[in-house]
């Protein structure tokens, strides 16, 4: 016997939650308990009184599982609302990465040239290294990191995806 798997597609969810202790554990635990995937998860407070947080989750699942993920998230008591941004229409996704690169000699110049093409900013520099800050979609950042590997990549820190719907309405 072999274990079958459902064909998955990638969706980005925005989960608006009351900012109470344990909420992140509740959401992350829901995914593990029910066998859902998390590709990326970001969380931050979004109101001045710090009472509400927005959690952006990138998950991959088949359509039936996705419907369940949204419904299961929505029934958690501290959850205000859940949006499947991918299903609901156009949205923009951005990620920020900080990329530390070893840079001396020719590599130093090449790293700066590539950074310029990718609109990466230098946020720290020493005589032998740079830290670049680059924002963009996941593919752009993947590509930038890949290029930096060739010129002397030391380490990468990425925020994970944040996303918001296009247009004038709130999700």
């Amino acid at each position: 016997m072999h274990i079958r798997e459902e064909t998955a597609e990638r969706h980005t969810l925005a989960v608006i939650v009351d900012n109470e202790p344990g909420i992140l554990a509740r959401i992350a635990g829901l995914f593990t308990a029910r066998g859902y995937n998390i590709e990326s998860l970001t969380v931050s407070e979004i109101t001045a009184d710090k009472a509400v947080s927005r959690i952006t989750i990138v998950t991959s699942a088949g359509p039936a599982t996705l419907e369940q993920i949204v419904a299961q998230l929505d029934r958690l008591v501290p959850v205000h609302r859940v949006h499947d941004l991918t299903a609901e229409g156009d949205h923009v996704e951005r990620e920020l990465a900080m990329v530390k690169v070893r840079g001396t000699g020719d590599h130093r110049i090449e790293a700066l040239r590539l950074a310029d093409v990718y609109r990466a900013r230098v946020v720290d520099a020493t005589t032998s290294s740079f830290v670049f800050e680059v924002t963009g979609g996941r593919a752009k950042i993947d590509k930038f990191v890949e290029l930096m590997a060739e010129v002397g990549l030391i380490e990468v820190a990425r925020t994970g995806i944040v996303a918001i719907a296009r247009g004038s309405e709130a999700a």
């Binding site: 369940q68 419904a71 929505d74 029934r75």
Partner: peptide, 11 residues
């Protein structure tokens, strides 16, 4: 009464 019960196993 629980929306997550709907379409969980049977369409």
């Amino acid at each position: 009464i629980d929306r997550s019960s709907i379409n969980k196993t049977v369409r």
